[in-house]
Design a protein around this nucleic acid. Structure first.
Lengths: 230, 230
DNA sequence: CGAGCAGTTGATGCCCGTCAACGCACGTGG
DNA sequence: CCACGTGCGTTGACGGGCATCAACTGCTCG
């Protein structure tokens, strides 16, 4: 189904002086030291990384590409848990089995790490252990912030939050290329594609963003967007 | 403001043969071994445990009572992140500073643990380290499940989920005593008090629950509630 | 060129929010 | 004892924000 790359394929980045086993999320550098603990795998666009209901025995770090995690109800309703960009780690939640599927949004390479390998290694390596915990508490903080978006914010505010979040993660660049379609955004924000589309054009009419194409967004007035965020 | 109890005040539970430093969440027994790592504190009803914006340098384990964590927007909108019952741990999210306040729903005793104490202790104690991580991944899984509730479920489904969750955490008892008011439930579920109230009476009219009083709920048909959950 | 997918825009409707009135339990003070 | 105030919850009338349904456009690829 998908090619399994060698460890070497991810080991091309230059070694750093003060190596961390785990990057902070939103840091783009793929640390080479992790390779001893995991395998590099490639996934095609829309390739399934793991399914809802499978044992949650692995962690994943995005090297290139992008990933979405999603939860499905029987009647087809979908909630996207998050999007993951290069340098970010997902699969931290311990469902046993998974409550979420994970799929590649684009051709993607992942570093795949077995949970039990990490656990036994962490028992001998306090720094790894601490980094794993830190990574998880940071993910938890981000997920809790998203609760406010889904529970209490208006459609316009949700879209503004989403764009600002993506911008910050993309290195504070005001030009964003969206790796996901409108349906994914809608399912992430608890809206419909139509509403997402309408809010995008509303933001454009307000002069806060520009839409050179449907997948490209330029933040023209990030401060005004932050005001919308509340 | 609030009385600071001695370590002993929480050490009255009988010692267990196979002691775990951390209970799994939803386990009610207050483990005595943790007392060496934290202090016992009491809080009055509606007492503030920590504020939004404070440094997130502590963890808390509920011994008696109940706690809510909440996030506020400037205009007063509120999202409750979770409710915590005896045996459960909160404060795991690493905001630095806190994105959430924590308040006692009722007279409450907590075991308060300094984060840096735990970290340095965990460096020498792989089991503690592993337990801390496990606790956090479990909390993350629960929070991600709540995303689906807030993003995609109807008002009736949200209330059904909430009642089933409380019932499971209360030891699978079909008689629930709600430690929180309607406003708290509403802010947890992303609804208004009126809608919560209407959904409660609707569930009652459907014969799925009984409401002997506003704070007491009996699940008459838990299976039908689970069907509503989807 | 036509099929198909992704996205936008418009018309309509409904779920839930808003606003308001009311019931009930409880406490306080005359 | 009752009058009164307060907090909490319920119920009803009404309206709005977003979902739903549908038509249309632009783009890509066979």
């Amino acid at each position: 189904m998908y090619a399994q790359g060698s460890i070497d394929s991810a080991a091309s980045a230059p070694r750093q002086q003060q190596a961390k086993f785990w990057d902070a999320p939103y840091v783009k550098d793929a640390e080479t030291d992790l390779n001893a603990l995991g395998l590099c795998q490639r996934f095609a666009r829309h390739g399934e990384i793991h399914a809802q209901g499978e044992p949650a025995d692995k962690l994943y770090k995005v090297l290139t590409g992008a990933v979405r995690t999603a939860q499905l109800l029987a009647d087809g309703r979908r909630q996207i848990g998050g999007f993951y960009l290069p340098g970010e780690v997902f699969g931290l939640a311990d469902g046993e089995p998974h409550g979420f599927t994970a799929e590649a949004l684009a051709p993607t390479t992942l570093l795949v790490l077995r949970r039990d390998t990490l656990i036994s290694r962490a028992a001998r390596d306090p720094k790894l252990s601490r980094d794993l915990w830190q990574l998880t508490t940071a993910q938890l903080a981000r997920t809790e912030r998203h609760l406010m978006v889904l529970g209490r914010k208006t459609a316009l505010e949700r879209v503004a939050c989403f764009l600002l979040d993506l911008s910050a993660r993309g290195g504070d660049n005001d030009d964003i290329v969206l790796p996901m379609c409108r349906q994914d955004i809608a399912d992430y924000l608890g809206l419909t594609i139509e509403t997402v589309s309408r809010m995008m054009t509303r933001l454009e009419q307000m002069g806060l963003i520009a839409l050179p194409s449907s997948r490209r967004v330029r933040l023209c007035d990030a401060d005004a967007l932050r005001d919308l965020e509340e």
